[in-house]
């Protein structure tokens, strides 16, 4: 296989990893004000993702860094082109990350509800905007002969892009609710389970619409097959959720997101950022790539260290595998 193909696949895997992992903690963040009644419940919800959200977020940093290293043209065009969307994502991620760390440092209810709002908005905005961004990558954006994006923020907010945003948002909400049903106890668990069922139906509707639309834009037999798998996995997740098999429901929602995102990448290949102005202006795995020398080195680094990362991140999930009960949240502290 060509090095550029390997790196396209690796970057796809990094984004898939990011969306599967951060997807549920975005979902938890958005559901926080709706599902958590009272401060202790909210703390229980936050503590389900407490030990892992930061590690989950590193996936996007590595995806960004890997794109820079392996496909500098892609990195440069995408990041300078989707400027304001990325700015909003960055602001949201900053506010959200700080909110997790700072929220419980003071007992003051006003302080805490402000950070709850930050967690909610800081999770909602990136979940939606990443969807908009990826839909636009797949659909193609105006890119000129010098590989410069010539649109603006409103170029991205087209119907297909917005549907992409809604799809990712709905999938993350479902994934988050399923995760909470898996990680909490008692009444909270029952409510999370009920939310997961309702959200999952909504997600199924928008996701099927979106994937079908995608198929008409940039589809092939492989991406079609993957879309079908994603739909089946989502139905499976909802059935498992219905009968209270939360582990299987979580596997189902994770597979749904992974395979749906994979279908986008498969449909995209060998393009990385098609142009709507002229097919020849588009970025591909060939014209956006680094040299074979750099790609070879990066391949070795990835081959050696990625398994290591997966092992210790997996171990973290094992260490914190137990459910978080509201009764476990210590009586109020803060300084």
């Amino acid at each position: 296989m060509e090095l550029t193909t390997i790196w396209f696949a690796l970057i796809a895997i990094l984004w898939i990893g990011y969306f599967v992992l951060e997807g549920f903690d975005f979902g938890v963040g958005i559901l926080l004000p709706f599902l958590g009644r009272g401060d202790r419940e909210r703390r229980a919800l936050i503590n389900t993702i407490g030990p892992v959200w930061d590690g989950n977020e590193v996936w996007v940093l590595v995806a960004g860094g890997a794109t820079f290293a392996a496909f500098p043209e892609w990195y440069a065009t995408l990041f300078s082109g989707f400027y304001l969307a990325l700015f909003l994502i960055l602001v949201a991620l900053i506010v959200r990350g700080v909110a997790f760390e700072f929220r419980s440092k003071r007992p003051d209810p006003a302080w805490r509800s402000r950070w709850d709002l930050a967690i909610f908005g800081g999770s909602l905005l990136p979940a939606f905007l990443w969807g908009v961004a990826f839909a636009n990558i797949v659909q193609g954006v105006p890119i000129d002969a010098r590989h410069q994006f010539t649109g603006d923020l409103f170029t991205l907010l087209n119907p297909y892009g917005l549907l992409g945003g809604l799809t990712l948002l709905a999938l993350f909400l479902t994934h988050g609710a399923v995760f909470l049903a898996l990680k909490t106890t008692g009444d909270l668990r029952r409510r999370a389970n009920a939310w997961a069922g309702r959200l999952g139906l909504a997600a199924a509707v928008v996701a099927v619409l979106f994937l079908a639309w995608t198929q008409t834009i940039r589809g092939g037999p492989a991406s079609l097959a993957l879309s079908v798998v994603a739909a089946v996995a989502l139905v499976g997740a909802l059935l498992a959720n219905r009968v209270g098999r939360e582990g299987w429901a979580f596997v189902g929602s994770a597979v749904t997101i992974a395979v749906a995102v994979a279908s986008l990448f498969v449909g995209l290949f060998p393009n990385v950022m098609p142009s709507t102005l002229d097919v020849a202006y588009g970025l591909t795995t060939t014209n956006a790539a680094s040299t074979p020398y750099t790609l070879t080195i990066m391949t070795w680094v990835a081959v050696v260290f990625t398994p290591l990362v997966l092992i210790y991140q997996g171990w973290t999930y094992w260490v914190f595998r137990r459910r978080v009960a509201v009764e476990q949240i210590p009586a109020d502290e803060g300084y």
Partner: peptide, 19 residues
């Protein structure tokens, strides 16, 4: 510079940020 400058950035993420 991406062919050169990107590699240490990506490696920083993979080796250090995850840790």
């Amino acid at each position: 510079v991406g062919d050169i400058f990107g590699a240490p950035l990506a490696i920083e993420g993979l080796l250090a940020f995850f840790l």
